[in-house]
Amino acid sequence: MSKEKALVEKIERKFGVKGKAERKRIWINIRKENMIDLCRYLKELGFEHLSAISVTDFIKRGKYELVYVVWSYHDNIAIIVKSEIEREKPVISSVTEIWKESAQIHERELHELFGVEFEGNADLSELFLENWKESPPFRKDFNWREYVGKKYYYKQDEKEKIYLEAGI
């Protein structure tokens, strides 16, 4: 049995979840209540490098999917943990106590771009944007064409209007 298979079965037994093993990748879906426990367990197993945190906005289902990618320098496997939260009230516990500063900065970025609240993250101040008052810009329902048009084109150059109206 491959290393990935053995590992995914171990996690499945412990947390009662369904996982998928591929070459060097393991995908796991888990309820958000058990997410922190799983993350702690993975850290103990040696998955100490947090490669990325991402959010996918499933607007039709009204859900945000949080994606945590962790890497083990010992086993050379990446585990991708996915957990769904409500889109309208996106709150989830922070993983800063597990993966420290590297988690902190990823969460700060996602708070700004998607508006996710990470409970327990001390610093969620603005990162890339400055004095942003609109809805978080990476949400699927943020109309960037309208925003750019209103903010930059209409006022400055009448000719620019054509790009906006053509919807390019």
């Binding site: 990325a52 996918t56 906005d57 994606v67 990618v69 590297s102 900065i105 970025e109």
Partner: peptide
């Protein structure tokens, strides 16, 4: 790294890009 999600259309549904400098230049 890149995490790409597709819903079957011509464009990716979500494309997360992980840049190494993001970690090196901030924390």
């Amino acid at each position: 790294a890149m995490h790409m999600v597709s819903d079957g259309t011509g464009s990716p549904y979500r494309c997360k890009i992980r840049g190494p400098s993001f970690l090196h230049m901030i924390p």
